[in-house]
């Protein structure tokens, strides 16, 4: 079994809203997951981990929110605010950084992770730490200019069975945006009540 990128993008928008973000940021979460997965990075699990912590800890410091930081970078078209910074799940900032860099290549690093980002793709050198579980705050996130990589991670068009548990997390958060059904809503909300069986 596999999932379509567009399917997980739509799910991530709802999950981010369900986790407590406004619609506009939630849309950016959908953009980010699709961007990461298409470039071979584990966007689904990164987002699921971050959103579930954000939802669990009401008032989790938004100054360290990778989505808010990413939006600011993208909106201002300026990377300087994240040259040295602290953030949860830094990989989630990558799509927004890519919005800004045009032809440049940059390296986003934290702990032992080095993520190389260019318009055409990404590369990283340390697989095991890229997504930590559970999601924690990194106080040593750095962004710098870098050399164009010799290789990119292979692009992907599907999300595999290995992400099933994280998709379940996103589903549970998305569920919070759905109104419980009542008999009234069943009839009135969809406008039925007429015989449609002729």
């Amino acid at each position: 079994m596999s999932w379509a990128l567009g399917e997980i993008k739509a799910l991530s928008i709802k999950a981010a809203k369900g986790a407590g973000f406004d619609w506009g940021i939630a849309e950016e979460a959908g953009f980010a997951v699709e961007w990461l997965e298409a470039r071979g990075l584990p966007g689904t699990r990164a987002m699921a981990q971050y959103l579930s912590r954000y939802h669990r800890e009401t008032g989790l410091d938004i100054d360290f929110c990778p989505l808010r930081k990413g939006c600011f970078v993208s909106d201002t078209n300026d990377l300087s605010s994240i040259e040295k910074t602290s953030a949860f799940q830094p990989v989630l900032m990558a799509p927004f950084i890519a919005n800004v860099i045009e032809g440049e290549t940059v390296k986003l690093s934290w702990d032992k992770n080095k993520l190389v980002i260019s318009k055409d793709g990404v590369d990283y050198n340390t697989r095991y730490q890229l997504i930590n579980e559970p999601c924690k705050l990194f106080e040593n996130v750095e962004l710098s200019s870098w050399y164009a990589p010799r290789r990119f991670l292979p692009h992907k068009t599907r999300i595999g069975e290995s992400e099933k548990a994280y998709i379940s997390i996103l589903n549970a958060l998305a569920h919070k945006t759905y109104a419980p059904a009542t008999e009234e809503s069943r009839l009135a909300g969809a406008g039925a009540g007429l015989n449609d069986n002729d």
Partner: peptide
């Protein structure tokens, strides 16, 4: 809104539901 039941868009009455 989207109903829990079939995940389909619905239209409800703001002041009644």
């Amino acid at each position: 809104y989207v109903s829990e039941e079939k995940l389909e868009p619905r239209l409800g009455e703001r002041h009644e539901e």
